[in-house]
Write a protein that binds this DNA or RNA. Structure first.
Lengths: 214, 214, 214, 214
DNA sequence: TATGAATGAGGCTTCATTCAT
DNA sequence: AATGAATGAAGCCTCATTCAT
């Protein structure tokens, strides 16, 4: 009655983080649809109307989660792969950071991400994020190609980047499903695959000239 | 009275196919959770209880869709990539069949597949399907490697195959999202990526010996 | 196509018995509401429309079961307790027959009976059956009383008979719930209780004259 | 605005009682299966989700009714039959309280009780309640027997108690079905039956020594 | 700021029952 | 005589969301 507990009447910013933490936990545990606002509020130790007041609708809340976790991941990668490094070094550091992040947030990012694919409401958000990533990768490839005096169409670049990103996501899934696997080692494997393929591409080789279109 | 079959009292086998058709359409249009059994039944031109009688629960229905579409795709690929062909030819034909299938069923397989990832209930089914695919790819790689007198650990093989499959899935997503894109051309791109990378691997190269762990 | 199996096209009477057998089994196994016409038809090895054609509605079917099983029990008791025997001998034989029947049809009569109590639709049927039984018991008591020159109001007789029947039903429940118990022994116990109480009543005794009303 | 409480936003405890009242009414009126949660909610003047929020599933709701009504009845009996009274006085007061309660709640306890028998989900609950009662009665009998220097096997005691309880339940049914009957008088009749039978048993008599197996 | 109370809406599932062959 | 195909109706339950305090 008198001594209000210290964890009440917290400033808005703090509360929002608590809620997002809880939301990420619950969404990961249950999936978007199976997660209930009740459970999220409970898990955050707060009442439901507060969640609505601070973070809006369930969909908005999920998007907020996506945003925060995506930003964290982006930051981790960007911090590791400085733009002034040589291309292969950037790729390697980027991959290591990516798999490290996924491995360290096994029930965070990877799961949210998997939830988001396939549900239209989040398609936009997700596309935006992936596009940022694809652009970065494509930029790296382009940079390296130009350094060697070659040039490729924007679409080709995009597709190759897309494939690399896809392969990485796929290995990230694999990592999330194999708790005993080592993120660093997985990054190494992905690097091998990507770089060997990219390397050949960079040298202008093609699988069978004249056979496959383009 | 005379020519019109009146669409009534059809034999079970026929109705089941109609239902599956409708289910694939609706699941693709709405996503698993947003799809309602009502809409599926409506779309199939039949009453809800029949759907339950023939195909069971909503989950079971979804799995039935997955099975049918998966079997169709598998058949398409298997029919194209005869096992007695050389490895690169098999890969090329398999990829062409895969992307052709996805391109021809843009609202079918690819979408179902995206829905299925991320929801635990279907994880098992999906894992089984993907594993079959991964095994095939891994088999092809292994075959080619041995033909050149090299040998790689099973895990390494699995991971590479996993990455290739992931890249292909990713490009399939891309294809499903770009209605104007050409499946054949996409297959060619994937082939380039895969084969160039694989080729280097086959020759025993590694990104940077001693740098990445393994 | 040619040699129609022997168990098809059976005469109506036989089919009806098969259905009733199945119905009793299923009703006992599941309870009235949880039992489905589908399961009953299946269990009878027959199609649903036949059940409706022969035995009508689900409620009517249940009543038919009640009738048949009730008649069998009544017959068993009546066959054992011949009306020309002395009262105590009749009671003893009747009880022995009753508990023997219940013990021998543990998932038949006892269960149906328990289902029927409590559901209004069958109240009438059940009341009729019980009333027949109560009348018989009351008649036995009355006969014995008059033989000793005493007379009791019809209501009192009914209530006592009702209590005895109730006690027996209760022990029948107990018997149905204790598969290891011996029906004969249970009959003996009930006989003791009934006869000792009745005997005192027959001698005109009352618990505490002037204390309890009547 | 001023005096009318408007029947809204009541505290949980109050609403729960209202719901239980409504549930008892509806279950009694319709039977467990025929009763719909809709009708219960309507009858309670509240929306369905509140019922689920406070009292859970339909089954749980029924059990809650059973509990509350059972507890009330137990309290009524226990309050009347003080343990320091002589056995016959305790029995008489207990019976009077029991029949008084049943008579006063004709659409409550007796009907619920009848519903509960026969449905497996409630068997456990009911068995527990009845067993408590049987134990009390058996205890009374045992106490009286020992006071007279006699001793009976536990099983015999249980069966006799079971029969007495069954007879009482049966008369309670009869009472519920005869709105014009007088509870007190019914209690007197049951007392006569029970006490006279018990009295003989207490004196060591048996229906016919050597005839019935024990 | 914070919350207990409250609900509209909608989804899945099951069944008894009947046609049409 | 017999059945596979078909459905209207209804029930349970859950949830996102909002009042009123």
């Amino acid at each position: 009655m008198s001594g209000t507990p210290a964890f009440k009447r917290l400033p808005r910013a703090v509360r929002e983080q608590q809620m997002l933490d809880a939301a990420v936990r619950v969404f990961s545990r249950r999936g978007f649809h199976a997660a209930s606002m009740d459970e999220i509020a409970d898990d955050a130790g707060i009442s439901k109307p507060m969640v609505y007041a601070y973070l809006g609708t369930k969909e908005e809340l999920f998007i907020a989660c996506l945003h925060r976790e995506g930003a964290r991941m982006t930051a981790a990668i960007a911090g590791a792969a400085a733009p002034d490094l040589p291309a292969d070094e950037r790729l390697w550091r980027g991959l290591r950071a990516f798999f490290g992040f996924v491995g360290g947030h096994r029930d965070g990012w990877a799961v949210l991400y998997r939830q988001a694919r396939g549900s239209q409401p989040f398609a936009t958000e997700l596309a935006a994020m992936r596009n940022r990533l694809v652009e970065v990768v494509a930029g790296m490839l382009d940079h390296a190609l130009r350094a060697r005096g070659r040039e490729v169409s924007a679409t080709d670049l995009e597709v190759v980047a897309y494939a690399l990103v896809g392969a990485s996501e796929s290995l990230a899934d694999w990592l999330a499903d194999h708790p005993e696997a080592d993120p660093e080692r997985t990054a190494g494997r992905m690097m091998n695959i990507a770089w060997l393929g990219a390397d050949r591409l960079l040298h202008g080789a093609s699988w069978e000239e004249g056979r496959a279109p383009s």
